[in-house]
Design a binder for these strands. Structure first.
Length: 129
DNA sequence: ATGCTGACTATGT
DNA sequence: TACATAGCCAGCA
């Protein structure tokens, strides 16, 4: 597990050893967390979207790793990140986490379809709303 | 440098 | 619509 041991309020300082190329001094992980932190309540963003927003289009998979490394109880709204098909995507031996994610989203008003998917057309976070 | 791994994706059947 | 495959990436051994 990559060393993601910070939470939103710790984003001010670099955490990793690798500076990062987009914003020197700030790691990719930190940027990802900062992006996720601004996803509005009741809306969701895809892993790929977060990656692009963090300045690394194509690094969707890496975003997943970052989410997986967030400490429990983190104030980062990790539950608002879903896959490109609009479904909760958490496989690694944590079926409970998946339910947890769905519960948190529904509590924010995000509706799931019969196929266990979210209608991205209406819930996807778009910059500006 | 090299080679994994994994809360991903786009594409082709 | 549901799988299978093949790229793609950052972080770490």
């Amino acid at each position: 597990m990559p060393g993601i041991t910070f939470t939103a309020h710790e984003l001010d300082r670099p955490t990793g050893k690798r500076p990062g190329k987009v914003m020197p001094g700030i790691t990719f992980s930190a940027r990802v967390v900062s992006v996720v932190a601004r996803i509005p309540r009741g809306r969701v963003a895809t892993y790929g979207q977060v990656a692009a927003e963090a300045g690394r289009a194509g690094a969707a998979r890496a975003v997943g790793v970052v989410m997986a490394c967030l400490p429990d109880g983190s104030d980062v709204p990790w539950h608002r990140v879903v896959n490109a098909r609009g479904e909760v995507s958490i496989r690694p031996g944590r079926p409970s986490a998946g339910e947890e994610q769905r519960r948190l989203l529904e509590r924010e008003g995000v509706r799931f379809g019969s196929g266990g998917r979210i209608d991205l057309a209406s819930h996807l976070w778009k910059r500006g709303r």
